[in-house]
């Protein structure tokens, strides 16, 4: 008999613990209406990133991500064009194969690929899970990222556009060179009497005056 009374009290104790939760708020979210905020490092849909200024793809077709992928979800076709540069012909990502491991993002040195917190891409058709380069880029347009590329690319870029009018540009180029030279001299050889005179005579008085 005593056991039954004891047991009854134990049951009431358990119910009390459950009862306390009646007054508390729910810990769940009503999903389609309310959405959780995904953490920054969240590994969801893979996207291709575009340059923040001109909107072009960051990808240089180096194929590193394709080689790092354990499930062969990425297929890249990038034959070399006439100027020996790789041209990205095809970049496909098969989300039915992808296991969201993040190895491709780690392999990419050009901030061209990122796993994002996006996750709503379910579809009734399996073929829709193969995303081509345009879709990957479009989905990635609003993704914020830290650009870890070296900014070399920018300085090189104006050269080809200049090459057409060679005659006009040459003088300015030489002027550029001359401008930088005296500065070097200033710092290295301060108070040496013989300063190498730059070829251009316009610059000469400047250096002398300062020295």
């Amino acid at each position: 008999m005593l056991e039954y009374i004891k047991g009854f009290f134990e049951l009431v104790k358990g119910l009390g613990i459950t009862g306390k939760h009646l007054t508390k708020h729910a810990v769940t979210l009503q999903y389609p209406e309310e959405k959780d905020v995904m953490p920054e490092r969240s590994r969801g849909v893979v996207v291709l990133l575009s340059d923040k200024e001109d909107g072009s793809l960051n990808c240089t077709s180096c194929l590193l991500c394709m080689k790092a992928c354990p499930t062969a979800a990425i297929i890249i076709d990038a034959p070399r064009g006439e100027d020996k540069k790789k041209v990205l012909k095809k970049f496909e990502l098969d989300f039915s194969l992808c296991c969201y491991c993040g190895l491709c993002e780690e392999a990419c040195n050009f901030s061209a690929l990122k796993l994002t917190g996006k996750y709503e891409y379910s579809t009734g058709n399996k073929d829709d899970l193969i995303w081509d380069v345009h879709k990957l880029q479009d989905v990635g347009r609003d993704v914020d990222y830290v650009d870890k590329r070296k900014k070399k690319v920018k300085k090189v870029a104006p050269k080809p556009t200049v090459s057409e009018a060679t005659d006009e540009i040459k003088p300015t180029q030489s002027a550029d060179k001359i401008e930088t030279k005296p500065v070097e001299i200033k710092t290295d050889k301060i108070k040496t009497d013989k300063i190498e005179t730059p070829q251009d005579k316009d610059e000469k008085p400047k250096t002398e005056g300062e020295a």
Partner: peptide, 11 residues
Amino acid sequence: EYKRLLNGNPI
């Protein structure tokens, strides 16, 4: 709390 909830429960 779990222990309180279950350990003594006769069932």
